[in-house]
Simulated scan of single mutants.
Amino acid sequence: MVGDSLNASAPVASADSGSANVSAVDTEGGWQPAKWPLPRVSAVDNLAAALSSRGFTDGVIRVLSHAAVRPDELRRKLADPAELRVQGGTLLIAETRLWSAAVVPHPANPREYGRRSYALGGAAANLRVLPEPTTSRDGLAELEILVDSPSTLAQRLEDAQGRLAKENPLGEDVAVDGVLQPLTVVPMTVRHRDGYRSAPLLIAADGSSRISAVHDLLDYAPSKVAYEWSSDSRRGERLYEVDEKGARVFSSGGEPRELTDALVRHAYNGESTTGFPPAAGFTAASRHWADVRAKVEELTKAVEAMAVVPVDEGGRSLVERDGWDDAQIAELRWRLDRSDRKLAAWADTYDFNRQAAQEQADEDQAS
């Protein structure tokens, strides 16, 4: 039976089949793939930061950081990639495991050239020829392809999956053993002549038949992978838990129950609800305190990053030279001051209670 993750190797990502603490199991129904847990948000964010430092575009950073089954592993391997000499240069390869729903077959697969109908073929032409991907205009380790519209690429991806699954049938083998050999996966940004937003993708430069077999078995439509599942349209919006009728679920305090990372992982992994983190008490407060510390660290890093943005490349810091809008800064400092006063009040309360407890203990000892 095929799983929802696969092995991949690429100038950015690849994967080996072995992994700590996760293994396949034998059941009455036969071999079953390992159930990989969703990675923590902090691990995804750390991988995104590592990719950003290497100059990838924002779209590719997003799809690649979310595609990694073990983002912490990929982040470490980025620091020491393998080298592969190819004609005209050297590829830097990091091996890791990717979610199969994050990779699509090569839309301009050279294997298809023999069956494509070209413009001179007459009215029977049913396939549009896609141009070969080119190197990023900014000289990054990414590919680019220009198509007429999203429907052009969507049709090509769907046709490629159907044709590859039919002419190079690997479905039965993949269903039994999974994907055994790694795929070569590279990032590619799709640009559209009709003005539609660019779509960052991870394409199988080698292994289109294998990923097509996986998608066919799991009933994944590559066009949805490209234009729906990888969409950034919900970025920044909060999600809330709903019941079977679609109505929001409210907490004991009457607030909508937000879908936190912990809740999503719980639902995804199917673990017992007894594993839910407590919503009250010191343990619950400690989880929020850890979140406060993490957010303060993020704020500190964001301020430091903004402080070094130059006026122009290699120049002086922009904010040191020009400063920043005083009204915006005043509003932010007012919000920070409110939090600072609240934290100070908690510290005073803790100190007061500690002194009261010590005085009570002294009285008890004296009596």
Rank of each mutant, 00 (worst) to 15 (best):
G122E: 07
L183Y: 09
Q365F: 14
S53N: 08
N46W: 00
D138A: 14
E331R: 12
F250L: 15
R128W: 02
Q360M: 13
A361K: 10
K342I: 14
R193G: 03
M188E: 12
Y113E: 13
I61H: 00
R75D: 03
R265E: 07
A49T: 04
P277K: 06
E255W: 04
G281P: 05
A327V: 14
V249E: 02
W99D: 02
T273H: 13
S17R: 09
E228D: 13
A345Y: 02
D362C: 02
R115G: 08
R70I: 09
W324I: 13
R156N: 02
A267H: 10
V12I: 15
G207C: 09
R234Q: 11
V242K: 12
A347H: 12
A284G: 05
S9I: 15
L332E: 10
S53V: 02
N126Y: 07
F352E: 13
L202N: 00
R338A: 15
D173T: 15
P310T: 04
G275M: 06
R116C: 02
W334Y: 11
E304G: 03
P222Q: 09
K224G: 00
L259Q: 04
P150W: 10
E237H: 15
L6H: 05
S100N: 08
T134Q: 04
S208K: 07
R234Y: 12
R191P: 00
A160H: 03
G114C: 01
R116Q: 14
L98M: 12
I61D: 01
E241D: 14
A280P: 00
K342H: 11
G270K: 07
A366Q: 12
Q355I: 06
R293K: 13
G162N: 14
Q87W: 06
T274H: 05
V179N: 06
N126R: 10
S251R: 07
V60E: 07
V41H: 03
D243F: 06
W324E: 09
K166R: 14
A285G: 09
Y113G: 03
K245W: 03
V22E: 08
A141P: 00
D261V: 15
T135D: 06
A247F: 05
A280R: 05
R293H: 11
R354Q: 12
A102Y: 00
E73C: 01
G323F: 02
L259R: 04
L84G: 02
V308D: 01
E298D: 14
A327C: 00
E313V: 10
Y268C: 02
D45L: 06
A267V: 12
T152A: 12
L47M: 07
E228A: 13
E313S: 11
K295Y: 05
D194C: 03
A160M: 13
R163Y: 14
L336G: 12
Y113W: 08
S149K: 11
T283N: 04
G275C: 00
G178E: 05
V308L: 01
W346Q: 09
N126L: 13
H215M: 10
R338H: 09
A344E: 11
E95T: 15
R287Q: 10
P187N: 08
D173W: 04
L127I: 06
R54D: 02
